[in-house]
Design a binder for these strands. Structure first.
Lengths: 234, 234
DNA sequence: CCGACTTTGTGCATGCGTTCACAAAGGCTT
DNA sequence: AAGCCTTTGTGAACGCATGCACAAAGTCGG
């Protein structure tokens, strides 16, 4: 099963931090490609991606030696290599579960299709929403979840359901064979070994901003006494 | 300006990684509080938050010694301390710019108000959308951006605009005094020193999942030849 | 064909984050 | 009051990520 040795210096263990930045590089490269730019130096690409050039070079070096010293990187070639490394040269079928405001926003987001992600199914439990057409797809009832996931060979599910429904829905998609989940519900999902979960939490992002904002304004004001005032109104 | 010494062992330099987890602990604590649970051990709270207990204790120790050995942490007290540290004991006025699908989803998201965030203004450039009422607020034209940010004392802006509009809008909110930005547009924003930007990118999250998904299936398939086939259809 | 110039790829040092393991500290029972 | 039990808070070791700085490797002009 392991064929690690076939590609020379290429080390299969790409650091997680690097993986998280590759999509950013990829987008910057696409922008350059649109402007018919053929080659780019690490300095330029790093600037476009908002990182420093040493980090960029080290990141790319994990994929292999795809640059030319004295010149830089060929844009198209690098696009291909990063795409392949990320698994974007194949198509992934994605299901969105939950079509409230957020689910609809996701269903209509153009950035998916252009990156090898195909919206394959939309699922909801609300009979008012089921049957509605969104972005060319008909919303199916969640009762058909298992069947649809199997039929469409879906391996990635996006959960945009209420917090209380998240874990049960998660359990169902996992037992149907989904091994990657993008979770928008504000809960910590429990999943078996081998299933990846990524979480996007709008509220958490704002709280982190608030922390730094407060810091700029002079740090948290309170001392012990404030707590007592806060709990009983005396 | 620095008054680090007033609070004993309390060290003002809380690691960024810890800050990012505090909101998760806070949510877990709120859940416990709803169930009228008075005290919680680091082991239990860690399980609820999806981290290990040593990390949780170290994180909390950065805020101070708020636990009782042999017992655990008092839920309500810890809620207050974390809230205060994150700056949630004061209200923050937030503006949402861009009310497409995503902007509407954010405007309707209940998780904000309950954490000290007040939706203070909704702004859009589209005359069809301007004037619409969403969640009790009227969408204003983006021409009034500067005035509204000043009037409502807005320090946090959420950008849910198209990629092409993101940088110009960013520049405008920054020059109006906003110092924290939550950016949903798929671009790297350039901001002056002292302005914090956090980015949420749906497409990037999926790409990271795809990487791991592919890894599970046996790693990237391609070798050199595939690239040549991919660029010219021969 | 050679030498100057550019830019990559990486060894190394530093700093941050995580985890282990345990002493210190409190409560509870007898 | 004394000892046992539980759980915190933290010192120390380890590992990962970042950034510097430079040798290696390539291009290009003459």
């Amino acid at each position: 099963m392991t064929r690690r040795s076939t590609l020379g210096a290429r080390n299969r263990g790409i650091p997680e931090a690097t993986v998280a930045r590759l999509p950013v590089y990829l987008r910057a490269l696409h922008t350059l490609a649109e402007r018919d730019i053929v080659t780019v130096s690490s300095e330029e690409l790093a600037a476009a991606a908002g990182v420093n050039s040493a980090k960029l070079r080290k990141d790319l070096s994990h994929l292999g030696s795809y640059g030319t010293r004295g010149v830089g990187y060929e844009v198209q070639y690098l696009v291909y290599q990063i795409s392949r490394e990320l698994g974007l040269t194949q198509d992934w079928s994605v299901a969105i579960v939950g079509l409230g405001n957020l689910g609809r926003a996701l269903a209509g987001y153009g950035g998916f299709a252009s990156r090898g992600f195909r919206m394959a199914a939309l699922l909801d439990a609300d009979p008012v929403i089921v049957g509605e057409r969104i972005n060319g797809l008909t919303v199916e009832h969640i009762d058909k979840l298992e069947q649809i996931i199997a039929d469409c060979a879906i391996s990635i599910a996006v959960l945009a359901v209420p917090a209380s429904a998240a874990q049960p829905v998660c359990d169902r998609v996992v037992s149907s064979g989904v091994t990657s989940i993008l979770n928008f519900a504000p809960v910590v999902l429990a999943v078996p070994e081998g299933v990846d979960v990524r979480k996007v939490d709008l509220s958490i992002e704002l709280q982190i901003l608030a922390f730094h904002e407060q810091r700029k304004a002079g740090g948290p004001a309170g001392v012990e006494q404030e707590y007592l005032e806060a709990v009983d109104g005396s």
